[in-house]
Amino acid sequence: MRNRLKVLRAERNWSQADLAEKLDVSRQSVNAIETGKYDPSLPLAFKIAAVFGVSIEQIFSADDVAQAAE
């Protein structure tokens, strides 16, 4: 799974700690999601989308879908 978490975060000038606080998770958890070490559950993915004010598809994409688009 690929994600645009880092880009979206940078656009808003938020640190990992800022995002972690908004999502009610630890900073390490944000880092794990951002680096692709962990794929979030659907409820957390919805929460992330709500925090950024975008749809889930605008943040996450499957590896094969992303490769096909490129």
Binding site: R12, D18, E21, K22, L23, D24, A50, V51, F52, G53
Partner: peptide, 24 residues
């Protein structure tokens, strides 16, 4: 509301999140 979400942190959400975080 989307504009407000994109423009920065919502103070009401921030307060709520802080309460939840500290509760966790």
């Amino acid at each position: 509301s989307r504009k407000r979400l994109n423009s920065g942190p919502d103070l009401r959400t921030m307060t709520m999140t802080k309460i939840v975080s500290s509760s966790r």
